[in-house]
Design a protein around this nucleic acid. Sequence first.
RNA 1: GGAGGCAUAGCUCAGUUGGUUAGAGUACUUGCUUGACAUGCAAGGGGUCGCAGAUUCGAGUUCUGCUGUCUCCACCA
Length: 882
Amino acid sequence: MNSYNELPKVYSPQDFEDRIYQNWCDKGYFTPDVNNPAPAFTVVIPPPNVTGQLHMGHALDETLQDILVRYKRMQGFNTLWVPGTDHAGIATQIKVEEQLRVNEGLTRYDLGRDAFLERVWDWKHQYGSRIISQLKKLGASCDWSRERFTMDEGCSKAVREVFVNLYDKGLIYRGNRIINWCPHCITALSDAEVEYSEQDGYFWHIKYPIKGEDGFVEVATTRPETMFGDTAVAVNPNDEATKHLIGKTLILPIVNREIPVVADDYVEIGFGTGCVKITPAHDPNDFLVGQRHNLEQIKVMNDDATMNGFAGKYEGMDRYACRKALVADLEAEGYIIKTVPHKHNVGSCYRCGTTVEPLTSNQWFVKMEPLAKPALEVVRDGTVKFVPERFSKIYVNWMENVHDWCISRQLWWGHRIPAFYCTECGEMTVSKTDIDKCPKCQGKVTQENDVLDTWFSSALWPFSTLGFPEKTAELEKYYPTSALVTGYDIIFFWVARMIFSGLEHMGKEPFNTVFIHGLVRDAQGRKMSKSLGNGIDPLEIIRKYGADALRYALATGNSPGNDMRFSDEKIEAARNFANKLWNASRFVRMNLTIDEIKLPSADKLAAEDKWILDKFNSLCAEVTSSLDKYEVGVALASIYDFTWDVFCDWYIELTKARLNEKETEGNIIAQNVLAYVLTGTLKLLHPFIPFITEEIYQSLPHTDESIMISEYPKFDSALTFTADSENMTKVIAAIKAIRARRNEMNVPPSRKAKVYVATRYTDAFNDSSKVFFARLASASDVEIADSFEGVISADDAVQIITDSATIFLPLSDIIDTEKELARLTGEEKKLIGEIERLEKKLSNEGFVAKAPAAVVEGEKAKLAKYRENLEGVKIALAKLRS
RNA sequence: GGAGGCAUAGCUCAGUUGGUUAGAGUACUUGCUUGACAUGCAAGGGGUCGCAGAUUCGAGUUCUGCUGUCUCCACCA
C-alpha cells in the first residue's frame, strides 16, 4: 500500500473546501513575486460595492476570472489578480441614510457632513469585509495582500492626481449645463446613470393666446408643469403653416407672462402642431434652442422636484401634483384643446428608480472629445480586443457619440472634488493637496462640497491599484493588465472610462482583452431581481452543493457575451459530475500500490493504454486552445466528455482485468497509466473546480505541494499514438464489438450468451481482454479467432457486423427473436438509406471532381463498409425468418 | 429611428475555419443491487437546425430578404 490517504466514501465538499482554501492562503500561493521574470498575467477584479452581498452575477464574474487566473498561473505566468471593493457613492450613502432613518429617525442633515461620513466609514468597516469573505468561499485566488478600496489612501491620491492633471489640461471644467437630476438622491447624474423605459402618458394640447390678437397658438406637451419655465415658442422658419407667427408675442396662460415666437430648425415640420414650447432650464433640446436665441433660463423646481416660486400658486407642490392641478385649472379656463394618450420614454435614476428631471445646474464635467479619440483608436486597431468581437461595435458607437461626462455629485460619500474657493477674493484653486489659504490673497478657502462620480475612481482601478501615481515595480510589471472580465451591462460605466483614463494617464491601454459575459437569469429566463424575489443566493448553493458545483454550473455551457440560465437541474448535474470524479478517483486510489507515477516506455503499454493516453493528449490541446479563446464552456465540455465517457466508462472498465491481477507487470503499468491520466485530468479541471481537484490530488502520488502550483498539462508529441493506427483500431474494434453485442440484446447481464468474435485484430482480444469483453458484453464465454469457418455460421447464429469484427451469437442463446428481428430490420433500413445517399453523392461528378481527395476517399470507404454490413444483416435476417 | 443578439430534440443549450448518419445535459421508454459511483450502469425513442431565396460539388454553418423574440443606444415637443 502506498503512503497517501484514502478518499472518504462520500463526496462531501463541506468537509474540505474551507480547509483547502485556508491552506492555499497560508502557503501564499495567491501572492506573486513581482521580481519573477516570467511574463505577467494580470487581472483586476471589477470591484464589488463595499456594501454589497455576493449575488449570482458576481459568482459568474469571479468564477470566470478565477478560471483564467488559475489556468495562467499553472502555465507558469507571473500571475496577479488584484481584489478590492468600490465605495459605490450613491448606493452606499442611500443604505446608510436608510439605516439612520429607521434606527434613529434622523437624516444626514441632522448629523452634518462630518458626523455622517463617520457613520458611513463605520458601516464600511463593519460590512466591507463581508463580500470579501464571500469571494473566498467561492475559491477566488486573489492576492489578498493587495486588497484595495476605491477610497483608500492610494486610490484617493490617484484620483487627486488625475483630477488636477485633467483640470490643468482643460479637460475638466465647471459650467452651467443641462444635466439629469435625481430628486430622490438629490444629485446630478451622468447620462449613463439614467435608464429609459416606455411609459403611458398624455399629450396635452394647450392654447397659448397671441398678444394683441384673438387667435392662439396650439402647443402640445407631455410635461405641462414645465410651462412656468417657458421662455419662447419655436416654429420652423421654413414651415408655411406657422411662418406668420414668427416674431409675435404670446401670453403664457395662468402665468400671464409674455414670450416670443422664435424660428428654429429644431422644430420638425409636420410633426405635432408645428409649435414647440421652449423650456431652456428643463429640457436638453430646449436648452440648445435657448442658447441660440439668447432666451432666459427659468428653473421652476426645487432640488426635490417640488415647484418653486416661479410656479406661483402651485409653489411647494410636487411636480406631479402640480401637473394634475395645473391641467385641471387649464381645463377649467378653456386652455386645453385636447388630451391625447401617448407612450413616451421616461428616464429614471439607475439607483433609486425615481424619474429624473432634466435641469440646468452648475456642475463639473470631463471634456470627452479629446479623450474619446485615442480610446476609439485602440479598439479600432485591435490593441484592445473585445471577446466576443461584437461588443467592440457597441463600444465604438457609444464612444463616437459620447457627451461630456458630468462628474460632480451632490453627495457626501465619495472623493470630494479638490477645488478650493477663496472666501475673500473668490478665486478657485484646484490642488493635489489640501490647502487652507488662497494662493492669491492668502484668504481663507473652503473646499467644493460636491464629490466625484463613483465611476471616476473606478476608471483608474487598473493603475491606481498598482501604485499610480508612484512609478512602482508593480506598475512596471503588471500594467497593462491582461484581461478584464465583466458583464456587458457596465461597458459604458466602466470599461469605456478605464480605456480613456488608462490611455490618458498611463499612456497605455489598461488591458489587452475585454472578456464580456452575459447575465445569470433564473430558470424561466427572467433577470434575477430583488423586486421579483427570484434571486438565487450563491452562498446557499455553496452550502448545499459546494463551491465547485456552483463554479461548474456557471462555467458549463457558458459562451462569451451570452446570458445563461441557472436552474436546479444545472446545479445537480454539476454536483453529479463532481461526485462521479470523486468516485472514479476513489476507485483508482483503492487500486494503487505505487508511490510515484511513472509512465512505462511505449512498447510496454497495452493498446488501451495508448488509446487513453492519445485521447488525453488531444484533450490537452483542445482545452488549452479553447481557454486561450475564452471558450470556457467549450473547454469544460471537452473535459467532461473525456472524464465521464472515455475515462470512466471505457478506460477504467478496460483496466479492471489487469487490476485484478496482483503484482504483475501489467498491473503496475495499468496503475501508472490510470494515475497519470487521472492526475492530468485533475489538473485540467483544477481552474474550474479547484477544491475537489486539490483534495483528490493530495490523495494520489504527487510531486508538487499543491495542484494549484503544478504545471498545466499541455500537448506532448511523445504521447501521440494516432500514427499507431493498428493499436488504435484494436481498441476501437473492441469497443464497437462490445457495443454491438450490448445493443443486440437488452437483457439482464445474468442472462449470458456465448460470443464468437471473428476479427483480424485477434490480439486486441487476448486472454486478459477476454475477461473485460465477457464482463462488458455480458458473455458467458468468449471465443476469438480470425475466422470461425466450420465452427459457427449464419446458419446457427445471429451475426453482428462491425467494421472491424464479426460477432456470432448462437441462435440457441437468443432470447427474443422478435426483438432481434426488429433490430435487424431497422438496421437494414438505415443501411439501405445510407448506401443510396452515398451512391448518389459519389455519382455526382461535381463532388468527385471538386471535393478534396480525402473527403471523396472517406465517402468511398464508408460506402464499401455499409455494403459489407448490409450483406451480413441480410443473411442474419434470412436466417431468423426461416 | 439606429444597432445588435437569439431562433437546433419535450425543456435548457453546445455545434471553432462549410465536409462522417447534427451533439450534450435533463426529461421519457426499457433492462440492471455489474467489484468507484442509483448523485450510478447499459440500451432506446425523439430534430424537414424559424421561413424563403442565393452562393457552392456540398450549408445548422456564408450572403440577402422575411417572421418571431430579447437587448442596447438615440429620441419629436
